[in-house]
């Protein structure tokens, strides 16, 4: 194709990494919950959507984006705690398809509730003024908000890594993931760990929802495609691997961006082609092994 300059190529690469950071954000919550609880959370996209709506709600109450950014993961995480305690917990030990079907239905319930409360019409969520506009990154203009997104995701991932790798609670989480029976025998309350991990995973999904809200329409169905993308990232990176989610998210972003540059109509398919390829070569995913950090 003509018209592809070096600058455009580099800008597109950067675009891919920026979009990849969003995929990381989407994938990491799903991956965390699966890695620890072996629960495939099909309501992940719905938690993301609820996060965006809670963002709209908090912005309406406080008028402050930063307060909302702190409030949303707490609210959605709390919702996650309630869901784990009262809906998921009774299903432990019954096979992986029980919580899968439950969360699948739960996703629809959330969408319906949001429709009833907020209506079917989209909600306004403008980019905060301070992050408006585009900046020159040397090869072209790039939206300030997307640069902020990259930073926010980096901070979040670093925080999660510190929490899991460097705290004693994180140690218990990792141990619980490897062998819950032994941890139980040692006198640790595993159910409490699972509760908290589910809360964190759903809280991160909610955070992703509000972070992405300025870039898209806030509608009840917005989480549906997110679930698919989060699964691709999780499968490519390896279920339950934090580093896997990061590498896979960025990789998916770059692959989609490069495909969009040379064959835009193939962009959507490219991430699934990548997933199929990875599954053929490494069925467990790039970093998929037992244990969170692979």
């Amino acid at each position: 194709m003509s018209g592809i300059t070096f600058d455009l190529f580099v800008l597109q690469l950067f675009t891919g990494l920026a979009m990849g950071s969003v995929y990381v954000l989407l994938g990491v919550g799903l991956s965390l919950i699966f890695g620890m609880l072996t629960v495939v959370n099909f309501a992940h996209g719905a938690f993301y959507m609820v996060g965006a709506y809670m963002g709209v709600f908090l912005m309406g109450v406080t008028g402050n984006f930063w307060l909302s950014l702190i409030g949303v993961p707490l609210i959605v995480g709390t919702l996650g705690l309630v869901v784990e305690r009262f809906l998921i917990r009774p299903l432990y030990g019954r096979g992986i398809d029980y919580p899968l079907l439950l969360t699948f239905g739960l996703g629809y319930v959330f969408i319906e509730i949001i429709r009833i409360i907020f209506g079917k019409e989209g909600q306004v969520f403008d980019t905060p003024d301070i992050l408006l506009g585009a900046v020159d990154i040397g090869v072209g203009f790039f939206p300030l908000y997307r640069i902020f997104l990259i930073g926010a995701v980096a901070v979040l991932i670093f925080g999660l890594w510190l929490f899991i790798e460097r705290t004693s609670f994180g140690l218990v989480i990792r141990a619980g993931a490897r062998d819950p029976e032994i941890v139980k025998v040692l006198g640790v309350d595993v159910s409490k760990i699972w509760l908290i991990v589910f809360g964190i995973g759903t809280g991160v999904a909610g955070l992703a929802g509000i972070l992405y809200a300025p870039l898209q329409g806030v509608i009840p169905e917005m989480g549906v495609s997110v679930l698919v993308e989060a699964f691709v990232v999780t499968v490519v990176g390896g279920m339950g691997s934090l580093i896997g989610a990061v590498v896979a998210g960025l990789l998916v972003g770059v692959v989609v961006a490069m495909t969009a540059l040379f064959a835009p109509h193939m962009a959507e398919v490219s991430m699934f082609a990548l997933m199929a390829l990875v599954l053929l070569v490494r069925p467990q995913g790039l970093f998929g092994r037992a244990g969170l950090m692979g």
Binding site: T15, M19, G140, A260, A267
Partner: peptide, 23 residues
């Protein structure tokens, strides 16, 4: 100067836009 197609119901347009800007 540019014709870029995107799949129906695309959520993220960032990968399609730089090419249009460059044109």
């Amino acid at each position: 100067v540019a014709e870029v197609t995107h799949p129906l119901a695309t959520k993220d347009y960032s990968t399609f836009l730089p090419r249009i800007q460059a044109a």
